[in-house]
Simulated scan of single mutants.
Amino acid sequence: MKKITLLALVLLTIWACKNDPKQENVEEVKVEDTTPKDGGKGAEIIKRVIDSAGGHRYETATIEFKFRDAAYKSVRNCGMFELSRSRTDSTGTPTESIITNMGFIYKEKGEQKTLPDSMANKYKNSVNSVHYFVQLPFGLDDPAVRKELIAEDSIQGKAYDEIQVNFKKQGGGEDYHDTYIYWVNKNTYKVDYLAYSYETNGGGMRFREAINPREVEGIRFVDYKNYTPKKGSSPKLNELDELFEKGELELYSTIENKDIKVEVLDRKCG
């Protein structure tokens, strides 16, 4: 894998100037870099990624799918949303967890129940996480998302832009401290690989390889092979692609979303 970081290019330019005798008597002029981390080239690339995966169709889409032992459904209509998960718990009781613009609702046998905050947050985060990954890259254009082009890269002979994503505390959700890296194919503007670090449940990091890409009603979906660093190793997040190429990551799970159904309203949001 060949990786060219933006920092390396800057250092190379500085070295060249210092070793050019014609530059010795030129007064140094400092130019402040005013490019915001949540704008610039990284944001431009992510916008093209979203457009290539479905674009505005996400904004009014109803998406249903099955993941493991549960049925999931998301309904969006120009900023209004409802994300739900329906399943039967270990006691045989039908349950439903619902996230809306107004908050979180939990039901058993169709009746709303009040849960302790810790349990409600656990269910809410679990439901939101599944919907988030299924609908990626939708949501990466949110104002709370910082997108930064950190390198040009190659994986298995294909060229990628390496985009690091962080979240602002305000509007970034409970997991705003998580960090993601997306490898965007330079030719297709598809996300073929992603990695992320997290702090919940003791923390850790994952590397995902997108598999089984398909389109349903103009929206792109993928499954994933989900990898983890070997026990005892402590690589940096942006090194996981190198370890993947060397076969030094362990397959943690395979993530398959089945029976995907999509309905898109014939309207555009303002």
Results as ranks from 00 to 15, higher is better:
residue 264 V to Y: 10
residue 104 F to R: 04
residue 215 E to Q: 13
residue 52 S to W: 00
residue 72 Y to D: 00
residue 236 K to N: 10
residue 142 D to C: 04
residue 95 T to D: 06
residue 100 T to D: 02
residue 22 K to F: 03
residue 36 P to D: 06
residue 34 T to S: 13
residue 128 N to S: 14
residue 196 Y to S: 02
residue 155 I to Y: 11
residue 20 D to R: 10
residue 265 L to T: 14
residue 232 G to L: 08
residue 193 Y to I: 07
residue 178 D to T: 05
residue 54 G to C: 08
residue 143 P to F: 05
residue 15 W to A: 15
residue 115 L to P: 12
residue 23 Q to V: 12
residue 40 G to N: 02
residue 71 A to Q: 14
residue 62 T to Y: 02
residue 40 G to T: 03
residue 143 P to G: 07
residue 108 E to V: 09
residue 58 Y to I: 12
residue 173 G to Q: 11
residue 136 L to V: 03
residue 153 D to C: 00
residue 85 R to K: 15
residue 251 L to F: 02
residue 103 G to S: 13
residue 201 N to T: 09
residue 175 D to W: 05
residue 142 D to K: 13
residue 222 V to C: 03
residue 113 K to N: 05
residue 170 Q to F: 11
residue 140 L to N: 11
residue 53 A to M: 09
residue 127 V to Q: 04
residue 1 M to H: 06
residue 129 S to L: 07
residue 160 Y to H: 10
residue 228 T to Q: 08
residue 24 E to A: 14
residue 125 N to E: 13
residue 50 I to M: 06
residue 262 V to I: 08
residue 173 G to S: 12
residue 250 E to M: 13
residue 92 G to R: 00
residue 156 Q to G: 05
residue 24 E to I: 11
residue 128 N to I: 04
residue 172 G to S: 09
residue 45 I to G: 04
residue 66 K to P: 00
residue 30 K to A: 12
residue 244 F to Y: 15
residue 158 K to Q: 11
residue 216 V to T: 10
residue 174 E to R: 12
residue 191 V to T: 14
residue 183 W to H: 07
residue 194 L to W: 08
residue 54 G to R: 06
residue 189 Y to E: 11
residue 28 E to F: 04
residue 164 Q to E: 15
residue 185 N to G: 06
residue 225 K to V: 00
residue 139 G to E: 07
residue 210 A to C: 12
residue 185 N to W: 09
residue 254 T to G: 03
residue 184 V to I: 14
residue 138 F to R: 08
residue 81 F to R: 07
residue 228 T to D: 00
residue 137 P to F: 09
residue 199 E to W: 06
residue 141 D to C: 01
residue 167 F to Y: 15
residue 196 Y to G: 02
residue 19 N to D: 05
residue 14 I to Y: 03
residue 241 D to N: 14
residue 240 L to H: 00
residue 79 G to H: 03
residue 186 K to M: 07
residue 190 K to C: 00
residue 266 D to P: 02
residue 27 E to Y: 00
residue 169 K to Q: 14
residue 88 T to S: 03
residue 22 K to D: 13
residue 101 N to E: 05
residue 239 E to D: 10
residue 130 V to M: 04
residue 84 S to E: 13
residue 46 I to F: 01
residue 170 Q to H: 09
residue 137 P to N: 06
residue 254 T to E: 15
residue 66 K to L: 06
residue 225 K to H: 09
residue 245 E to V: 05
residue 183 W to Y: 15
residue 161 D to N: 15
residue 99 I to T: 02
residue 129 S to R: 15
residue 22 K to N: 13
residue 7 L to S: 12
residue 215 E to F: 14
residue 186 K to W: 01
residue 163 I to C: 04
residue 79 G to I: 10
residue 221 F to M: 09
residue 192 D to E: 14
residue 140 L to E: 01
residue 213 P to N: 12
residue 216 V to D: 08
residue 55 G to S: 08
residue 16 A to M: 15
residue 170 Q to Y: 09
residue 241 D to Q: 05
residue 261 K to N: 12
residue 224 Y to S: 03
residue 27 E to V: 01
residue 132 Y to M: 13
residue 94 P to M: 05
residue 99 I to N: 02
residue 143 P to D: 06
residue 58 Y to P: 02
residue 70 A to F: 04
residue 237 L to Y: 02
residue 9 L to K: 15
residue 234 S to C: 03
residue 212 N to H: 10
residue 172 G to W: 04
residue 229 P to K: 07
residue 76 R to Y: 12
residue 45 I to F: 07
residue 60 T to M: 10
residue 208 R to S: 06
